[in-house]
Design a protein around this nucleic acid. Structure first.
Lengths: 115, 115
DNA sequence: TTACTATATTCGCAATTACGAATATAATGA
DNA sequence: TCATTATATTCGTAATTGCGAATATAGTAA
Protein backbone atom coordinates (compact mmCIF):
# COMPACT_ATOMS: atom_id res chain seq x y z
CA UNK A 1 0.00 0.00 0.00
CA UNK A 2 1.44 3.33 -1.11
CA UNK A 3 1.05 6.44 1.05
CA UNK A 4 -0.49 7.97 -2.02
CA UNK A 5 -3.39 5.50 -1.93
CA UNK A 6 -4.34 6.83 1.47
CA UNK A 7 -3.99 10.40 0.30
CA UNK A 8 -6.09 9.70 -2.76
CA UNK A 9 -8.75 8.11 -0.58
CA UNK A 10 -8.78 11.10 1.71
CA UNK A 11 -8.86 13.52 -1.20
CA UNK A 12 -11.85 11.65 -2.60
CA UNK A 13 -13.75 11.94 0.66
CA UNK A 14 -12.86 15.60 0.99
CA UNK A 15 -13.96 16.19 -2.56
CA UNK A 16 -17.28 14.53 -1.84
CA UNK A 17 -17.78 16.94 1.04
CA UNK A 18 -16.52 20.01 -0.81
CA UNK A 19 -19.96 21.39 -1.58
CA UNK A 20 -22.46 22.92 0.87
CA UNK A 21 -25.37 20.98 -0.57
CA UNK A 22 -23.58 17.70 -0.08
CA UNK A 23 -22.70 18.66 3.45
CA UNK A 24 -26.36 19.42 4.04
CA UNK A 25 -27.27 15.98 2.71
CA UNK A 26 -24.78 14.29 5.02
CA UNK A 27 -26.11 16.29 7.96
CA UNK A 28 -29.62 15.22 7.06
CA UNK A 29 -28.59 11.57 6.98
CA UNK A 30 -26.99 11.94 10.37
CA UNK A 31 -30.28 10.92 11.97
CA UNK A 32 -30.77 7.91 9.79
CA UNK A 33 -31.76 6.57 6.42
CA UNK A 34 -33.91 8.67 4.09
CA UNK A 35 -35.44 8.22 0.65
CA UNK A 36 -34.07 10.42 -2.13
CA UNK A 37 -37.40 12.19 -2.39
CA UNK A 38 -37.13 13.34 1.21
CA UNK A 39 -33.68 14.75 0.55
CA UNK A 40 -35.17 16.72 -2.36
CA UNK A 41 -38.08 18.00 -0.28
CA UNK A 42 -36.29 18.79 2.94
CA UNK A 43 -33.44 20.64 1.30
CA UNK A 44 -35.69 22.14 -1.35
CA UNK A 45 -33.49 21.01 -4.20
CA UNK A 46 -34.16 20.41 -7.84
CA UNK A 47 -34.66 16.69 -8.20
CA UNK A 48 -31.95 16.35 -10.84
CA UNK A 49 -29.48 18.34 -8.84
CA UNK A 50 -30.11 16.31 -5.72
CA UNK A 51 -29.67 13.16 -7.71
CA UNK A 52 -26.37 14.37 -9.07
CA UNK A 53 -25.11 15.29 -5.63
CA UNK A 54 -26.25 11.94 -4.29
CA UNK A 55 -24.37 10.27 -7.13
CA UNK A 56 -21.20 12.08 -6.10
CA UNK A 57 -21.68 10.92 -2.51
CA UNK A 58 -22.33 7.37 -3.69
CA UNK A 59 -19.31 7.29 -5.94
CA UNK A 60 -16.92 8.40 -3.26
CA UNK A 61 -18.38 5.93 -0.77
CA UNK A 62 -19.77 8.45 1.67
CA UNK A 63 -23.31 7.13 1.41
CA UNK A 64 -24.88 3.81 0.63
CA UNK A 65 -28.10 3.37 -1.29
CA UNK A 66 -30.75 0.71 -1.09
CA UNK A 67 -33.65 0.35 -3.45
CA UNK A 68 -36.98 -0.54 -1.90
CA UNK A 69 -39.82 -0.73 -4.39
CA UNK A 70 -39.74 2.45 -6.38
CA UNK A 71 -37.77 4.37 -3.73
CA UNK A 72 -34.07 4.62 -3.08
CA UNK A 73 -32.99 4.99 0.52
CA UNK A 74 -29.72 6.66 1.40
CA UNK A 75 -27.69 6.35 4.58
CA UNK A 76 -24.22 7.26 5.75
CA UNK A 77 -21.72 4.54 5.19
CA UNK A 78 -19.99 5.31 8.47
CA UNK A 79 -20.88 7.86 11.13
CA UNK A 80 -17.24 8.86 11.50
CA UNK A 81 -17.76 11.67 9.02
CA UNK A 82 -20.07 13.35 11.45
CA UNK A 83 -17.13 13.56 13.78
CA UNK A 84 -15.21 15.30 11.03
CA UNK A 85 -18.03 17.79 10.48
CA UNK A 86 -18.23 18.48 14.21
CA UNK A 87 -14.51 19.15 14.41
CA UNK A 88 -14.79 21.66 11.60
CA UNK A 89 -17.69 23.31 13.38
CA UNK A 90 -15.40 23.87 16.33
CA UNK A 91 -12.73 25.21 14.00
CA UNK A 92 -15.23 27.60 12.40
CA UNK A 93 -16.22 29.08 15.74
CA UNK A 94 -12.59 29.37 16.79
CA UNK A 95 -11.81 31.28 13.63
CA UNK A 96 -14.92 33.40 14.02
CA UNK A 97 -13.97 34.26 17.59
CA UNK A 98 -10.45 35.16 16.52
CA UNK A 99 -11.70 37.30 13.68
CA UNK A 100 -14.03 39.16 16.00
CA UNK A 101 -11.24 39.73 18.52
CA UNK A 102 -9.10 41.08 15.74
CA UNK A 103 -11.85 43.46 14.67
CA UNK A 104 -12.21 44.67 18.24
CA UNK A 105 -8.47 45.24 18.45
CA UNK A 106 -8.43 47.23 15.27
CA UNK A 107 -11.36 49.31 16.45
CA UNK A 108 -9.59 50.03 19.71
CA UNK A 109 -6.40 51.04 17.93
CA UNK A 110 -8.26 53.35 15.62
CA UNK A 111 -10.08 54.95 18.52
CA UNK A 112 -6.70 55.55 20.17
CA UNK A 113 -5.24 56.98 17.02
CA UNK A 114 -7.97 59.58 17.06
CA UNK A 115 -6.99 60.83 20.50
CA UNK B 1 -25.27 33.66 11.11
CA UNK B 2 -26.92 31.36 8.59
CA UNK B 3 -26.39 27.61 8.75
CA UNK B 4 -25.23 27.92 5.20
CA UNK B 5 -22.28 30.09 6.25
CA UNK B 6 -20.98 27.19 8.31
CA UNK B 7 -21.56 24.76 5.48
CA UNK B 8 -19.80 27.03 3.04
CA UNK B 9 -16.88 27.32 5.44
CA UNK B 10 -16.68 23.58 5.78
CA UNK B 11 -16.99 23.07 2.04
CA UNK B 12 -14.11 25.49 1.53
CA UNK B 13 -11.86 23.58 3.90
CA UNK B 14 -12.85 20.25 2.35
CA UNK B 15 -12.15 21.70 -1.07
CA UNK B 16 -8.72 22.83 0.06
CA UNK B 17 -7.99 19.27 1.14
CA UNK B 18 -9.53 17.62 -1.90
CA UNK B 19 -6.27 16.96 -3.68
CA UNK B 20 -3.55 14.46 -2.71
CA UNK B 21 -0.76 16.96 -3.23
CA UNK B 22 -2.39 19.42 -0.87
CA UNK B 23 -2.88 16.70 1.68
CA UNK B 24 0.79 15.86 1.37
CA UNK B 25 1.67 19.51 1.96
CA UNK B 26 -0.49 19.63 5.09
CA UNK B 27 1.09 16.42 6.35
CA UNK B 28 4.52 17.92 5.75
CA UNK B 29 3.60 21.02 7.75
CA UNK B 30 2.39 18.87 10.60
CA UNK B 31 5.86 18.98 12.09
CA UNK B 32 6.22 22.72 11.81
CA UNK B 33 6.85 25.67 9.56
CA UNK B 34 8.66 25.20 6.25
CA UNK B 35 9.79 27.46 3.42
CA UNK B 36 8.03 27.02 0.07
CA UNK B 37 11.27 25.76 -1.47
CA UNK B 38 11.37 22.87 0.98
CA UNK B 39 7.83 21.90 0.09
CA UNK B 40 8.90 21.84 -3.58
CA UNK B 41 11.98 19.74 -2.86
CA UNK B 42 10.55 17.30 -0.35
CA UNK B 43 7.46 16.51 -2.39
CA UNK B 44 9.34 16.73 -5.67
CA UNK B 45 6.87 19.13 -7.21
CA UNK B 46 7.13 21.56 -10.04
CA UNK B 47 7.72 24.95 -8.44
CA UNK B 48 4.73 26.55 -10.17
CA UNK B 49 2.42 23.71 -9.25
CA UNK B 50 3.50 23.80 -5.63
CA UNK B 51 2.93 27.52 -5.57
CA UNK B 52 -0.54 27.09 -6.99
CA UNK B 53 -1.43 24.45 -4.44
CA UNK B 54 -0.04 26.62 -1.66
CA UNK B 55 -2.17 29.48 -2.95
CA UNK B 56 -5.25 27.29 -2.67
CA UNK B 57 -4.32 26.37 0.91
CA UNK B 58 -3.69 30.03 1.73
CA UNK B 59 -6.95 31.19 0.21
CA UNK B 60 -9.06 28.77 2.17
CA UNK B 61 -7.23 29.57 5.38
CA UNK B 62 -5.67 26.21 5.93
CA UNK B 63 -2.14 27.57 6.02
CA UNK B 64 -0.56 30.86 6.94
CA UNK B 65 2.45 32.36 5.20
CA UNK B 66 5.19 34.60 6.47
CA UNK B 67 7.81 36.26 4.36
CA UNK B 68 11.33 36.28 5.75
CA UNK B 69 13.89 37.87 3.43
CA UNK B 70 13.47 36.20 0.09
CA UNK B 71 11.74 33.11 1.52
CA UNK B 72 8.13 32.45 2.36
CA UNK B 73 7.45 30.17 5.30
CA UNK B 74 4.26 28.19 5.54
CA UNK B 75 2.61 26.70 8.59
CA UNK B 76 -0.74 25.20 9.49
CA UNK B 77 -3.22 27.72 10.73
CA UNK B 78 -4.57 25.28 13.28
CA UNK B 79 -3.46 21.74 14.08
CA UNK B 80 -7.08 20.59 14.26
CA UNK B 81 -6.95 19.54 10.64
CA UNK B 82 -4.43 16.90 11.51
CA UNK B 83 -7.10 15.39 13.70
CA UNK B 84 -9.37 15.32 10.67
CA UNK B 85 -6.72 13.59 8.57
CA UNK B 86 -6.13 11.03 11.31
CA UNK B 87 -9.82 10.25 11.55
CA UNK B 88 -9.94 9.61 7.84
CA UNK B 89 -6.94 7.35 8.15
CA UNK B 90 -8.92 5.24 10.56
CA UNK B 91 -11.85 5.28 8.20
CA UNK B 92 -9.63 4.16 5.32
CA UNK B 93 -8.35 1.18 7.23
CA UNK B 94 -11.84 0.27 8.36
CA UNK B 95 -13.02 0.28 4.77
CA UNK B 96 -9.95 -1.65 3.66
CA UNK B 97 -10.56 -4.28 6.32
CA UNK B 98 -14.23 -4.58 5.33
CA UNK B 99 -13.34 -4.88 1.67
CA UNK B 100 -10.85 -7.62 2.42
CA UNK B 101 -13.39 -9.50 4.55
CA UNK B 102 -15.87 -9.25 1.70
CA UNK B 103 -13.31 -10.64 -0.73
CA UNK B 104 -12.65 -13.55 1.62
CA UNK B 105 -16.37 -14.23 1.88
CA UNK B 106 -16.81 -14.25 -1.84
CA UNK B 107 -13.84 -16.58 -2.23
CA UNK B 108 -15.30 -18.94 0.33
CA UNK B 109 -18.67 -18.94 -1.37
CA UNK B 110 -17.14 -19.64 -4.73
CA UNK B 111 -15.09 -22.50 -3.31
CA UNK B 112 -18.31 -23.98 -1.87
CA UNK B 113 -20.12 -23.58 -5.14
CA UNK B 114 -17.48 -25.77 -6.73
CA UNK B 115 -18.18 -28.64 -4.37
C1' DT C 1 23.67 47.90 -11.65
C1' DT C 2 23.37 43.26 -13.11
C1' DA C 3 22.91 38.44 -11.92
C1' DC C 4 20.96 35.16 -9.18
C1' DT C 5 17.60 33.03 -6.01
C1' DA C 6 12.91 32.47 -4.42
C1' DT C 7 8.30 32.26 -5.32
C1' DA C 8 3.90 34.17 -6.98
C1' DT C 9 0.97 34.73 -10.99
C1' DT C 10 -0.53 34.18 -15.73
C1' DC C 11 -1.10 31.53 -19.88
C1' DG C 12 -2.71 27.79 -22.76
C1' DC C 13 -4.94 23.66 -22.73
C1' DA C 14 -7.80 19.87 -21.52
C1' DA C 15 -10.64 17.98 -18.11
C1' DT C 16 -14.01 18.48 -14.60
C1' DT C 17 -17.86 20.55 -12.05
C1' DA C 18 -22.48 22.39 -11.07
C1' DC C 19 -26.85 23.99 -12.55
C1' DG C 20 -31.60 23.38 -14.59
C1' DA C 21 -33.98 21.26 -18.43
C1' DA C 22 -34.79 17.23 -20.86
C1' DT C 23 -34.80 12.51 -21.12
C1' DA C 24 -34.31 7.66 -19.67
C1' DT C 25 -35.27 3.96 -16.59
C1' DA C 26 -37.66 1.37 -12.99
C1' DA C 27 -41.56 0.34 -10.09
C1' DT C 28 -46.47 0.76 -8.85
C1' DG C 29 -51.39 1.45 -9.55
C1' DA C 30 -55.60 1.69 -12.23
C1' DT D 1 -51.64 -1.74 -20.98
C1' DC D 2 -51.33 2.99 -19.96
C1' DA D 3 -50.61 6.51 -16.42
C1' DT D 4 -48.22 7.94 -12.56
C1' DT D 5 -44.49 8.19 -9.27
C1' DA D 6 -39.61 7.99 -8.19
C1' DT D 7 -35.14 8.83 -9.40
C1' DA D 8 -31.04 8.26 -12.34
C1' DT D 9 -28.67 9.99 -16.37
C1' DT D 10 -27.74 13.05 -20.24
C1' DC D 11 -27.54 17.54 -22.35
C1' DG D 12 -26.10 22.27 -22.91
C1' DT D 13 -23.78 25.84 -20.82
C1' DA D 14 -20.65 28.50 -18.16
C1' DA D 15 -17.36 28.34 -14.67
C1' DT D 16 -13.62 26.14 -12.37
C1' DT D 17 -9.59 23.17 -11.79
C1' DG D 18 -4.93 21.26 -12.46
C1' DC D 19 -0.78 20.82 -15.07
C1' DG D 20 3.66 22.61 -16.98
C1' DA D 21 5.61 26.52 -19.37
C1' DA D 22 6.25 31.24 -19.37
C1' DT D 23 6.40 35.38 -17.07
C1' DA D 24 6.28 38.69 -13.20
C1' DT D 25 7.73 40.20 -8.76
C1' DA D 26 10.63 40.54 -4.69
C1' DG D 27 14.87 40.02 -2.19
C1' DT D 28 19.98 39.22 -1.99
C1' DA D 29 24.71 39.08 -3.60
C1' DA D 30 28.47 40.41 -6.51
Amino acid sequence: MMPDDLRRFKAEIFHGLAHPTRIAIVELLRDGELPAGSVVARLQLEQANASQHLAVLRNCQIVTSQKKANQVFYSLRDPVLIEVLDILKRYFFTQLTQTMSLIEEIKTEEAQNLE
